[in-house]
């Protein structure tokens, strides 16, 4: 049998490689934009949940719960195929970034909340007793300590967002997966798919290893 020729066909791979790399660029664009939006949104939600009036904290909790329970693929299809019926027409790129950011913000908010809650209450009390404002308490005292704690789970979340960018291929986004399926169709050979899979692994394996290392380090004392 010619397994090698089917799955690891070098000429096909070489031919499709430029296309795959373009796909990788799109994947990274979607991923990094969504990660940044999710970080900003999640941090905002987490801090607002601490200080906002009760109505808002309830709304924030509902937001977080909904966007953590909805399947990303469903959300993406709703954004891309359903919103146009109410006049909101987003490009494939914006649809993907919107769906990924909304979900990532919900997870990031939970991660930051856990990080902030892990800071001993005495830190809040000492800040209050010194007369520091809520803003200064957060920026100078609480967040610098919380961020250290949340780096491993945040990195984990980044990995998930990068992996989930593959879903963007269903809204005709020419990301890595979409380029691979197209190249496969063109070449009538699955090698480009294998190539794409290897690129995903090469991209994310180092991040996975970093998280594992950080988690080990953080669990070994260091507060």
């Amino acid at each position: 049998m010619n397994l090698l020729n089917t799955f690891f066909n070098i000429p096909v791979l070489v031919q499709s490689l430029p296309q795959l790399l373009w796909g990788l660029v799109v994947t990274l664009e979607i991923g990094i934009t969504s990660i940044l939006c999710g970080l900003v949104g999640g941090l905002f939600l987490a801090v607002a949940r601490l200080y906002a009036p009760r109505v808002f904290t309830v709304l924030i909790r509902i937001y977080i719960d909904i966007f953590r329970s909805i399947p990303l693929l469903v959300l993406l299809i709703v954004v891309y195929y359903a919103l146009p019926f109410v006049g909101i027409r987003l490009s494939p790129f914006l649809s993907a970034v919107t769906a990924l950011s909304l979900v990532s913000a919900a997870y990031t908010a939970e991660i930051f909340r856990a990080g902030i809650e892990a800071i001993p209450h005495g830190q809040f009390e000492a800040s209050a007793a010194l007369g520091l404002s809520n803003r200064n308490t957060m920026v100078d005292v609480i967040l610098p300590q919380a961020i250290r704690i949340v780096i491993p789970p945040l990195t984990n979340n980044c990995i998930n967002v990068l992996k989930d960018t593959a879903l963007a291929s269903v809204v005709a986004m020419p990301d890595l997966l979409k380029q691979a399926t197209q190249a496969q169709a063109l070449a009538a050979n699955p090698t480009p798919l294998i190539g794409a899979a290897l690129i995903y692994v090469a991209l994310l394996w180092p991040m996975v290893a970093v998280v594992a290392h950080l988690e080990k380090r953080f669990s070994k004392g260091k507060r």
Binding site: P120, G122, A126, A129, G131, D140, V141, Q145, R223
Partner: peptide, 16 residues
């Protein structure tokens, strides 16, 4: 609070 300083049993210094 700016006029009232406080010292706690558990110090509560900022560790970072």
């Amino acid at each position: 609070r700016a006029e009232v300083g406080m010292v706690f049993q558990s110090f509560n210094l900022f560790p970072h």
